[in-house]
Design a protein around this nucleic acid. Structure first.
Ligand SMILES: [Mn+2]
Ligand SMILES: [Mn+2]
Ligand SMILES: [Mn+2]
Ligand SMILES: [Mn+2]
Lengths: 218, 218
DNA sequence: TAACGAAGTTAGATTAATCTAACAAATTTT
DNA sequence: AAAATTTGTTAGATTAATCTAACTTCGTTA
């Protein structure tokens, strides 16, 4: 029986290796970092995951998910995003509130629950942050997207998802007048720090490069 | 922060002491029994619960919940029954399937979730087994009920709740043609073993005393 | 009331998940 | 290539929840 901790590690590895543009392997420290544990702890867990054949990794080497590990991770991601959608669509949660509770709900073990929840939500394709929801077979509908930081000055684009799911970031995004599907026009960009001025619904704001890199657009 | 195990112990104590007719205190062994752990384990946990002032108990003495402990237990019962209702009403679960999943869902920590779930379900008063759902203040609408074993021969009564929530028992109840609100007529009762013949929708069945004691009627 | 069986407790071990501190290897910088 | 920095590992300790085996206390019955 897979534990909650194990599910969290596999999910984190999936985010690091499969959902990151141009990355297919992860390191102990970055894994520890996003799980908010010490590297020693992650290292200890890695040994267990390797033993169970959910990751492949050798001492001092890089970490990758095995097929089995990836499929377990995707199942957890699927549950996470279905629950976020449920909270948002049915229980009046805002998009900055759903993540924390979904972190707990994703660990509930019941195949029927997931299947019925998906039907109840009418087979949603994306969660409240614009991220794709894997289907029952573990297939993920990939959307070609880039970050706002990569868009040229003068162009207009549409926000389709956010990278950082923290409530502080999401609340800031709302404050900028942004939500999923918002049209964003790039007014100007500073060369030296990558900060930029954008226009949303006729309102102009200045945002840092860091912020722009956390907004995915098409 | 209260752990899942602690919540399970408090809930079990609540069932033993507050929801059992004519019982206000529990023993270590029966507590261990319903939680499916060894007496030594329960004893160990009892020390922690006492330390946290959620139970009052002295070595070799009886166990009772403190006010704080009772209120925590009721909150967990409330969540359990709301989730059971959700699974039954919205996700097409049958009444013998809801308990196991609710055992997990009851531990999710989010006040907003509980409050919104209750609203979403339109403030249900009872769960799929006929048990009352405590309100947000922890108040429970008590219904005067007796077990089928106590009903006189010749009388007709109505099933309002079941004591045993195990799926094997619930499936047996369904097989008898029974569900909540079913009318049951007592045809006869054997003196020596308390078994009885009942009639439900013109169909007669014979049930043991044990079964009759697990059916609550008015 | 003494003994017996039931109920309850203690001691010591185990497992999972975490930590700190010290150490080792790998990579980058000078 | 040596030094410095970053990355990763090990050893040992801690906490929560569980177990088994042995022991103690309680309550009932002869
Ligand atoms: Mn989680
Ligand atoms: Mn999300
Ligand atoms: Mn439970
Ligand atoms: Mn119930």
């Amino acid at each position: 029986m897979i534990s909650q901790a194990e599910e969290n590690y596999l999910k984190a590895l999936f985010h690091l290796t499969n959902e990151m543009q141009g990355k297919i392997e992860a390191g102990t420290n970055e894994l520890a970092e996003i799980l908010d544990v010490k590297p020693a702890t992650a290292n200890n867990m890695l040994k267990k995951l390797k033993e169970k054949e959910w990751v492949s990794y050798e001492k001092y080497g890089k970490i990758t998910l095995t097929d089995k590990g990836k499929s377990l991770a995707v199942e957890t991601v699927r549950k996470h995003r279905l629950w976020e959608t449920f909270l948002y669509e049915k229980l009046n949660f805002t998009w900055d509130e759903v993540h924390e509770v979904a972190e707990q709900l994703e660990h509930i073990k019941s195949d029927k629950l997931v299947q019925q929840l998906e039907r109840f939500l009418d087979f949603p394709e994306t969660d409240p942050h614009g991220d794709p929801i894997p289907n029952a077979k573990g297939e993920i509908k990939f959307v070609n997207r880039k970050t706002l930081a990569e868009v040229e000055v003068g162009k207009t684009c549409k926000l389709i998802s956010v990278k950082d799911n923290s409530s502080s970031f999401l609340q800031y995004v709302v404050k900028l007048g942004l939500g999923l599907s918002s049209k964003i026009k790039i007014i100007s960009r500073q060369d030296f720090d990558g900060s930029m001025e954008i226009e949303v619904n006729k309102v102009r704001s200045s945002i840092s490069k860091k912020v722009a890199q956390n907004l995915f657009v098409v």
